[in-house]
Design a protein around this nucleic acid. Structure first.
Length: 444
RNA sequence: GCAGCAGUAGCUCAGUAGGUUAGAGCACUAGUUUGUGGAACUAGGGGUCGGUGGUUCGAAUCCACCCUGCUGUACCA
């Protein structure tokens, strides 16, 4: 086979996709197992939906648009456009609409799954990521909204975060709605610009937001963003309204009362949080971390939230027949992993195998015997995979961070006492086979 | 998308008034030790200096365009 040099396949990954190594995966597994435990306790049922959906089932795309690829990965299958899901909420709405008559009302489900977004990735943000979602469908009760917040904090604390490490920020769409009425802002485009500006308070502060509400803002790199062109007087009114310390809308008053009954206090009323602009209709939540997150160059980066959600009473109704008010919350698992791994006190135990060295292929029977004794006792064990000099085998064991090596050569086999070498101390001991398990457990 | 910065060995980087075979540390391979890892020493492999074109007797170095990455910003249903 002749291959042009230029035709070698690329070993690079597509933008926004990453390989994930064991350390990270173990942290992720840990988080997931905590999530599952909590979900069972709260009585949610487990659901999985496919990665692909019909494009029009999970988003609203203009009929004249040739390719529905704004932000999503799509392809045409026969005559229908399919898209990789960009979140788990839209597929849930589709699922509920499809199975409405069979499912319990309210329907409580949770889901873990990868989602894909065709956007520019940022620090800790990828184009493929794992999301966790818990939703109540078919209830208007604010008890549901409140419980989601309590539940999400239980998960975070189970994962090792302290109360001071995070906060659930809460607001309601009703606040901004009333504000628009008051200021007589009716143009939906301008509403969007205002909402987007307000959404950035945590990053830009009021100074930056005021610029965006007014003429516009120039960022650090010198790039300019046009503003909403509001009057100074109106900007002032917005500021006053959004700086209020306690909520005046009914929904939030009720939720905060429920929090009291739960004895839950790790939340902050923050009228400046906006979140996604399309489908939320009531209370909205955002899960924010309060410690600095850095990149691999040790620079503190703008990390943003690890999750959020809110009430979306009309989403299921979009499919036609059924009216199902709903509320839900989600966590970006990979982002949480990324942040959690930076907490110094956070360690996940990795189990590495004890390595049985190979001196002579003809003694394989003896090695396998020792191996199965150890494995039966639940000890991760392997016979050195290959035929190499002892030195190589030791280097291998060291490289994989094996806790110990078993030397079982001719002399040891004759006496029936393998040598156990503790790889962290370097000490060796001659041990009866039946004592091996006990001795190794001391080392591990 | 827009903007700023950057791309030299697997990794982190040095190397510009343009000049012989392009360097270091770490990692890797072999050996010093043919039954012993993590330390040390010795030797070795590995680079079309992101790509393409241009200027020049001569380009990692200068110019143009492109690609990729980082950071910010916009968008994020």
């Amino acid at each position: 086979m002749i291959k042009e040099k230029n035709s070698k396949p690329s070993k690079e990954l597509p933008l926004g996709f990453v390989d994930r190594q064991e350390r990270e995966l173990l942290v992720r597994d840990f988080i997931i197992s905590n999530i599952k435990e909590v979900m069972i306790k709260y009585g949610f049922q487990y659901l999985e939906t496919p990665s692909f959906e019909y494009s029009d089932s999970i988003g609203k795309f203009l009929p004249d648009k040739d390719r529905p690829d704004e932000g999503v990965f799509s392809f045409k299958d026969e005559n229908k456009w399919l898209s990789l899901r960009y979140d788990l909420t839209a597929p849930l709405a589709r699922y509920v609409a499809k199975n409405y008559l069979e499912i319990p009302k309210p329907f409580k489900r949770y889901q873990l799954g990868r989602v894909w977004r065709n956007e520019k990735p940022g620090p800790g943000r990828f184009r493929e990521f794992l999301q966790f979602d818990a939703d109540y469908v078919g209830t208007k009760s604010l008890q549901a909204d409140a419980e989601l917040c309590v539940m999400i904090s239980e998960i975070l604390e189970k994962c090792g975060l302290a109360k001071t490490d995070y906060a659930i920020k809460i607001s309601s769409r009703k606040i901004t709605e009333e504000l628009f009425k008051k200021l007589n802002i009716t143009d939906s485009k301008q509403k969007l610009i205002v909402l987007r500006a307000l959404d950035k308070i945590d990053r830009l502060g009021w100074n930056g937001v005021n610029e965006l509400l007014g003429a516009g803002r120039k960022d650090k790199s010198g790039d300019f963003t046009k503003g909403a062109n509001l009057k100074t007087k109106d900007i002032k009114i917005i500021q006053e309204e959004l700086k209020k310390k306690s909520p005046e809308t009914e929904d939030l008053v009720e939720i905060f009362k429920i929090f009291q009954d739960y004895n839950f206090d790790n939340f902050e009323f923050d009228p400046s949080i906006i979140r996604g602009l399309e489908y939320y209709t009531g209370p909205i939540f955002e899960v924010n971390l309060k410690f600095d997150v850095t990149n691999n160059k040790n620079q503190v980066i703008q990390f943003g939230s690890v999750g959020g959600g809110g009430r979306y009473d009309n989403l299921v109704n979009n499919f036609g027949n059924y009216d199902a008010p709903a509320t839900g919350i989600s966590i970006g698992i990979d982002r949480l992993v990324y942040a959690l791994m930076q907490k110094k006190e956070f360690k996940v135990k990795q189990y590495k195998p004890v390595v049985i060295c190979v001196f002579d292929k003809n003694s394989m029977k003896e090695y396998i015997n020792v191996q199965s004794i150890l494995r039966k006792a639940g000890i991760s064990t392997e016979i050195y995979p290959g035929e190499n000099k002892l030195k190589k085998q030791m280097e291998y064991a060291n490289k994989i961070k094996s806790p110990a090596v078993i030397l079982y050569g001719d002399t040891e086999i004759k006496s029936g006492k393998p040598t156990l070498r503790d790889l962290s101390s370097g000490k060796e001991k001659s041990i009866e086979i039946k004592e091996l398990v006990n001795e190794i457990k001391k080392i591990i």
